[in-house]
Each structure stands twice: as C-alpha cells, then as structure tokens.
Design a binder for these strands. Structure first.
Length: 573
RNA sequence: CGGGGAAUAGCGCAGUCUGGUAGCGCGCGAGCUUUGGGAGCUUGAAGUCGGGGGUUCGAAUCCCCCUUCCCCGACCA
C-alpha cells in the first residue's frame, strides 16, 4: 500500500470529544470518524485491523468446530415476543416498523433468531452437536454510549451459539469455546484474564468474561492473591466470617437517635463502630419489596441480590415506598417489625455478629442489642456485599486484589433457557423428544480494537501488537527528491511484499519529521527508514515501535532480516 | 433518567459579560525557498456562528423554545 493512495486522514490535534486514549488515537490516526453518539464510520486502516482480528477469530472458532453463518440484522418482533424479550429487553432494543406497519428490531444479539433457524431443520440427535457463529454489526441503544468504541451503540461482534444433546456434551462445548477464546486473545497479543461473571439478562448457569486489563476499563475485577479465583466484582464470592463474639445476653432495647440517618452518625452517636450496625436496604425486585441486611461498614451488591432472587429487575426502593413499609423517614429502616410480605435476607457478615444495632422502623429511633433468632427470625444467609480490596476470597480466604478490565469476550452456559420455551427440540436415541442444551459466546471485535490500544499506546500514538496491526511495517523514504533514496525504498518495499509482509510505502512528498510523526501515530509495529545519511554507508535503519529499539541493516539484507523478525512476532497460527 | 459542560471554517479555539455586519493557530490550494522528528515567506479558498422564534435600526452576542454532543452517576451479554 502506498501512503499517497491510503485514505488515512491524520489530525494534529485530537477532537475534543475524545477522553480515553483509544478514542482519541483512533480519531487522530485516521481510523475512525463519528457519525452520531456511539455510531462510527470505519476507515481503511480500521478495516485492516478488524480483518486481522476477524481472521484470528474465524481460524480458532473453525478449529473448535464452529461454522460461520450470517443472520439478519433486522429481525421480526414475533420471535422476540415468543421468548418474552420483546418486553423484557427494554428501550435498549431499537424497534422499527416496515411500510406494512409490521414490527422489527435491530439485532442486539441473536438467541431467538438462531433458535428459530435451528429448530426448523434439526430434528435428531444425529445432527448434534451444532455450533454456529457470525461476525456482524449489532445495535444496542445504550443509555449512555461513551469512550468511543469501548461502549458504542453500533458495534461489530462475533456471536456463536451451540446446541448439544445433553448437559455433559454442552459442558464440553463450553470448555472448547473457553479454550478457543483463550487462544484468540493470546494471538491478538492482549494481556487478559478469564473471570467468573454474573449471567445477567442473558441468563444461564455458568459464565466467564474475558477481560483485557486496562486502567480505563469499566469493569472491576478481583483476583485472589493466593489461589486462581478471578471474578467480576459483581460476582466475587467472599468468605463468610465465623461468629467471634460471645453470645449476647443483653435484651433488645429501643434508643433515641434524633436526626441520625447515616451509619456513621448512628455509630458515632452510640459510641460504637459501623461494623456493629446492620444496614437495612429496601429494594424492589420485580415489583416485590425485599429487605437486605449488610454490615454497616459494607456495601450492598445489587447484582448479587438480583441473582439470588432470580429477579429480572431490581432497584433501591424510593422514599415513598420506604415510608410506607417502615412507617418512618428514610434512614431508620430495620428488619424488626417489617410488614410480613417483605422478605428479609442478610449477608453472613451481619449474621456473624452476636448482636446488632439497626433501625427501629420509627423516625429518630434505633434498636440495640438485636439478636437474630431471638428478636426476629434468623434471615437466610446470602452473600450480598460488594467486595473490596483486601477482602477474603470465597474459595481460599486469601486477600482479593482489584483490577480494571475491558470485557472483550463472554461465554455463557445457557442450558435450556431458550430451547425449552421456544420448542427447539430433538429426538434422542430412545425416540424421546428433548430440548437442546445451549451455550452462547460473544466477542466484541471493535472493542478488541479499542482495548488493544488502551493497553498499547504512548504519547506519540498507537503501538499495535503485530498480529492485529493494520500493516506490519512502514518504509519511510526521507528525501523525496533523492532518486537513490526513492529507488532503495521502493526496492525494500517490493521485497517485503514479495516475502509476504504487509508493508506500506510512505511515498508522500512530506518532510521527514511529518512522516516520523505519522508512522508513530498510526502505530505500524516496524519502521524502515531510508535516508541519504545511511545510504552513504549502504545501510537503512529500522525502529521497533513498541520498544523503541533502533538499529541498522544493509540495504541488501534489510527485507530478509526484518521479515524474520516479523514472522516470529506474528505468533503461532 | 439525575448532575455538570459544550455547539463559531475540516480540527483546536478566541469573540458573547458591555449588540455595530466574524477572527487566530493548524489543516487545505497556488508560488518560491527548504528537507533526519509535524519548515519559512507570499498569496488564496473556505463559516446558514447547532435549529426555530422573539427583542432591536441592527443579534454569534440579549430573551424563550428545541436539537445534538461530551463528562460524572444510575444503567448495561
């Protein structure tokens, strides 16, 4: 590729809309242009990167036994009504009507469509297992798109769906996909971690996210410093403390706590610490009120509570509802004396206390020396709290450490969540009709592109990992008016192409400084510099973008020796 | 959806308070000089000042309404 022909409009200054590095650099280096919030045009360099990521994804999925298909972007409402998600998915599902007023939506994911496709033609266990994937544009009308490609509304995703005859076979498929994902992200040159995750709205029983480690990541992940347990903070299981206090003997008493609404205020007022308090949070799960107790110095993890309750919607109760349920102002809720229809669940750390202080469901009053099992029925123990740095690992008790991550892949064990209600069944060897056991698996291609930059950049620009760089090497003839410089650059460029290297020749009539700046900005992993100075000695120079390493090569041997370096940097196929 | 900020040439910005017919840097075209880390000079093209309404002799500037975009939060395969 010649730079004079390449449409890669670089900018000296970053558009002000860009905050995170990947966003700013993709705009500046001429990969991306914005068309609307969370909606972008991909320029030629971006297409090269996506093609190379796509190739790795396809190779590894094909190797894992999956087959590529292409499903419609616009899908009929009936399918989504059949699964119930037409109403459940909410405003994130972008709906449209055709000229006949028939309802459709833009596909944010494709479980319904794939089930409809498979149930039509697959009737026998002999046709299983089946694993189908596509790489396609998806649309989710995000509440708040942000950070460029990291959270766009329109994005390119690989989504795969597997169908097996039984749980055991589906488990093997899940593991095969997990392994394929591991290879894919390794081959992309990313530093990542597979983490245990909450299954969210997609549902299912087992789930791992693949998180690229980056400070700008939206997700918090915890990793045990002693064992291999790594999980999304939403899911992170904590070790339940054992009861350490002596059994309480004092009887329950009501104390006045005028105007003390916060845990800190109450603790200070009563001369104790927040860890002796039970914080009572009222939430509404699918319309039903629930009281959740966590220790005063802990925070409630809504995702954990939602998962425990099996709810699809959960939110903290509003002020009006709190008043209705407790008969008191906000800040004085407690588990004693709540209406009978309010279920109470408690974090093990609360239950480990011999006696607690909690709200009295009366304005300006708390209860002290409340004992579970004596003053109220012992609530069921549910891990409810948000993990913090240093908290004990639920598997081994080691200390948790925190990382920020960008979710680039997610694998779900779905079971029969979709196949059963949608009648995706087959006849087993005994002639019995059974629902297929499914899994689904996503990889965000456009998000990988951004995540790779978050992880690999400096003040000058992008430092692409070789396997996903738009081109592997750029040849820079520095003196545009020097015939020997030009012909040598041309020669090295041609040789590289002949050796199967993806090369770019910067044949633009520009000053050397500008070419260097653009080369660093765009992020080609290798640069070959052809200038009068080196040529006098029969040499050209090279620079490795990622490390800054520089060196000289003979004109005659340059392409060969660089090609060898590039081949090792490409990684195994 | 709550809070904050912004919209003026392709990009980055000034001008708005105090109304007088739009400017700077970069980029873009032409010419000359230059050429190892975003060159210099000369010259030129380019803007419905986000949109609509109002006040005024006169509005980028004042008033009202709307739209879009960005950030924080809530939300989220």
């Amino acid at each position: 590729m010649r730079m004079t022909a390449l449409h890669a409009p670089t900018l000296k200054e970053a558009p002000k809309e860009a905050e995170v590095p990947s966003h700013a650099l993709l705009l500046r280096a001429g990969y991306l242009r914005k068309e609307a919030a969370g909606i972008y045009s991909f320029l030629p360099l971006a297409m090269k990167v996506l093609a190379r990521i796509g190739r790795i994804v396809r190779e590894e999925l094909d190797r894992a036994g999956a087959q590529e298909v292409l499903l419609p972007l616009i899908q009929p409402a009936e399918l989504w009504q059949e699964s119930g998600r037409w109403t459940k998915y909410g405003p994130e599902l972008l709906r449209i009507k055709d000229r006949k007023d028939a309802e459709f939506c833009f596909s944010p994911t494709a479980e319904e469509l794939i089930v409809s496709l498979v149930r039509r033609d697959v009737r026998s266990y002999r046709q299983l297992p089946l694993n189908l994937y596509q790489i396609a544009t998806k649309f989710r009308d995000e509440v708040r798109p942000r950070a460029g490609l990291l959270r766009g509304r329109e994005f390119i995703m690989k989504d795969a769906y597997s169908f097996d005859a039984d749980e055991a076979a589906a488990g093997r498929t899940y593991q095969a996909m997990y392994d394929a994902y591991t290879r894919i992200f390794q081959r992309c040159g990313l530093e990542f971690r597979p983490v245990e995750a909450d299954t969210g709205a997609i549902g299912g029983s087992r789930s791992h996210e693949f998180q690229v480690l980056a400070e700008t990541g939206e997700d918090s992940i915890v990793s045990c410093s002693q064992c291999t347990y790594t999980a999304n903070v939403e899911k992170a299981e904590l070790l339940a403390p054992s009861a350490s206090d002596a059994p309480a003997t004092a009887v329950l008493r009501r104390v006045d706590t005028p105007g003390k609404r916060t845990v800190e205020d109450v603790a200070a007022f009563l001369g104790t610490t927040p860890s002796r308090l039970a914080k009572t949070l009222l939430v509404v799960a699918d319309g039903k009120p629930v009281a959740a107790l966590v220790r005063g110095d802990h925070e409630l993890n809504l995702v954990k509570l939602k998962a425990h309750l099996g709810a699809t919607e959960i939110e903290l109760a509003g002020e009006a509802l709190v008043r209705e349920l407790t008969g008191a102002d906000v800040g004085f809720a407690g588990p004693v004396g709540l209406p009978a229809h309010v279920d109470v669940v408690a974090d093990p750390a609360v239950l480990a206390l011999s006696a607690v202080i909690c709200g009295a469901n009366a304005t300006d009053q708390h209860f002290a020396d409340v004992v579970f099992g004596r003053d109220l029925p012992r609530p069921s123990a549910v891990d409810l709290r948000l993990a913090h740095d240093g908290d004990p690992c639920g598997r081994c008790g080691g200390a948790f450490r925190f990382f920020r991550g960008i979710e680039v892949g997610h694998v779900f064990f779905l079971g029969t969540k979709y196949s059963e209600p949608m009648g995706c069944t087959f006849l087993d060897q005994d002639g019995k009709e059974r629902p297929m056991v499914m899994g689904c698996y996503g990889i965000g291609l456009t998000r990988i592109m951004a995540a790779a930059i978050e992880q690999n950049h400096d003040a000058d620009g992008i430092k692409w990992p070789v396997p996903i760089a738009p081109h592997e090497v750029v040849v820079l003839p520095l003196n545009a008016d020097d015939a020997e410089v030009l012909s040598t650059a041309e020669r090295v460029y041609r040789e590289l192409l002949d050796l199967g290297v993806s090369a770019v020749l910067d044949d633009r009539d520009m000053r050397p400084g500008a070419k260097f700046k653009d080369a660093d900005l765009v992020g080609f992993p290798f640069q070959i510099v052809v200038g009068k100075r080196g040529l006098a000695e029969g040499n050209v120079e090279f620079k490795v973008r990622a490390t800054g390493e520089k060196g000289t090569l003979t004109v005659a041997g340059a392409s060969q020796s660089l090609t060898e370096r590039i081949r090792t940097a490409r990684g195994g196929a």
